[in-house]
Each structure stands twice: as structure tokens, then as C-alpha cells.
Amino acid sequence: MADQRDHGVAPVLVLGLGNLLLKDDGVGLELLKRLEPDFVDDPRVEFVDGGTQGLALAPYLPNRCAMLILDAVALGTEPGDVHHLPDARSTPATRSTTAHEGNASELLAAATLIGECPETVALVGIEPDDVSTGIGLTERVQSALPRALKLAKDTLGTLIQPE
């Protein structure tokens, strides 16, 4: 039931995920907020605060060439480590590595099943330190933001202009 409003979307989607109420779990949304101003007038990219949503984010995926997910990624390494998954579609690690219920892998699987998943899905995230109830990032994650931001910006650059 796609209609005209679905066409003409920006070819690249940047999707921030996370729960603002669970400290470091909200790091993806903080990255989103800091990345967006650099691309504010760029018609090739759209920024969406996905919160902890899962399937409800499906409307944002169709007709995109690429997607960059920004998220807390708990791989069990040192808190503050910056993780980069250039191909999140085929990396099983994207399954349940995020701290919130909106399961990015479920979203990707569902979108794949109906043929609406972007061809390229990259992920940039930070290993959380503390995901207990509270607002604001821990120091270790806070200090990793510049590195993650640079990585996210570079990744987005290549997604916008694929070689």
C-alpha cells in the first residue's frame, strides 16, 4: 500500500535508538542530537529519534539506500568502547545487544521479510557502563562521545556518497 508520500524520501536514514530513562542506554539519541546539526540542510539524509520502538519504526525504512543506526551496543567489552558494525544486516551481534525492548534485529528481520530493508545498514555505538534508571550518560560513555561522533560522521559520509 505504498503511496506517493513514500517516494522522495532521503536516501539515507540515521536512526537513533535507546531509552533516555536508562542512563547510557540513551547514548544513541545523544549521538543523533550531536550529528544532526552538521547535516541539517542535506536533503540526502533524514534523522529519526526512534526511542525504544521496534516494529513501529518500519515506516521509516522503505525506499532508502542505506541506514545508519546509532545505539548503545553491549558486546561485553570495556565501557566506553566505540563499536562500528559496517554491515549490521549480516552481523548476528545486532541481535539483542541493545538494552531496550525495541529490538533492532527484529525490525531488520521484519523489513527484510517484506523486502523493505535498506541495502546497507551500518551501526555505530558505544559500550554502556550503566543502564540503570536515570537520565544522563556516565563519564566513561560521555568521554567516548567525540570518537563515536567522528566515526558516525565518517560512516555517514560514505553512505551518502557510496564509492
Partner: peptide, 8 residues
Amino acid sequence: FTQRICGV
């Protein structure tokens, strides 16, 4: 804040 409680 409360609308961030839940993903659904």
C-alpha cells in the same frame, strides 16, 4: 518522560 517508558 512517561512516553519513553515503553517501546510499544
